[in-house]
């Protein structure tokens, strides 16, 4: 499988405090990869550097072999990276479908168009994306009345609009009910399978991670301590140390 994203020795420090310390990894095409770690491990910092919200202190990020380190979020998006946020960012003054239409307007490079009526543009296309995330029935409701889980799905639809090759999802299921979590991750896994998109996501819910991720990376105090399949990570003594002080939660039996 070809490599979509390659991260080399990524580092971020604030006034001497090192948040991310020399992280290197790669994401392959069609891969669903999780980045886990305790609170404060540096997951979100890592994500924000990949997507351009933060400038790394050192290190490089490559997308499809070309360097994207330090580029702006919108430039990275143009190159085919979509993202969803830990705390959702949607346009509260628009309807659900208009949120998707907005992304499509940007995708079709019509942002500086002054003539058309925006709410008529790409409506059918937007409806298709809403169908992907099962929001078609709420298309014309104001975004501000949506339930949180629905907002998360809307964000996913928005992120798909530019036909990304890589999706970065920062805690996609945070704040959702257990059933909804499983449904959202199943949806994500389907998208990975059907469209060949690669997904890198951070997550706190181990059920979600171990049920869906092809590969798992563990971050602790800014450094990667494991990178491998679910089984490899589960049996990695260093990971067990970090999460449980040596307990057995990750043993298969414990989850059965």
């Amino acid at each position: 499988m070809t490599e979509i994203l390659r991260v080399e020795n990524l580092k971020k420090s604030y006034d001497g405090f090192i948040a991310v310390n020399g992280v290197s990894f790669s994401v392959k095409q069609g891969e669903l990869k999780a980045l886990i770690g305790p609170n404060g491990a540096g997951k979100s910092t890592c994500f924000n550097m990949l997507m351009g919200q933060l400038r790394p202190t050192a290190g490089e990020v490559f997308l499809d072999g070309s360097r994207i380190t330090g580029q702006k979020p919108r430039e990275i998006w143009r190159r085919g990276v979509g993202r969803t946020f830990q705390i959702t960012g949607t346009y509260q003054s628009m309807t659900v479908i208009e949120n998707v239409q907005m992304a499509l307007i940007s995708h079709h490079r019509r942002l500086f168009s002054f003539g058309a009526r925006a709410w008529r543009l790409y409506r059918d296309e937007a409806m298709d994306f809403l169908r992907t995330v099962d929001l078609q029935d709420q298309a014309d409701r104001p975004c501000s009345v949506l339930a949180y889980g629905d907002l998360k799905r809307l964000e996913l639809a928005i992120a798909l609009c530019h036909r990304p090759r890589l999706l970065l999802m920062d805690e996609p299921t945070a704040g959702m009910a257990p059933q909804a979590r499983i449904a959202l991750m199943q949806l994500t896994a389907d998208i990975v399978r059907d469209q060949g998109v690669s997904v890198l996501f951070t997550e706190h819910d181990m059920d979600v991670v171990f049920a869906h991720a092809h590969h798992i990376m563990v971050l602790n105090r800014g450094a990667l301590i494991a990178d491998g399949s679910a089984a490899e990570v589960r049996n990695n003594p260093k990971v067990q140390e970090v999460y449980l002080g040596g307990g057995t939660l990750f043993k298969e039996e414990a989850h059965a």
Partner: peptide, 19 residues
């Protein structure tokens, strides 16, 4: 128009708009 929507998008959530 699309431009007006982009303007409102930047007001509602600059973070998402940039992304």
């Amino acid at each position: 128009a699309p431009f007006g929507y982009a303007l409102r998008a930047g007001r509602d959530s600059p973070r998402q708009a940039e992304a």
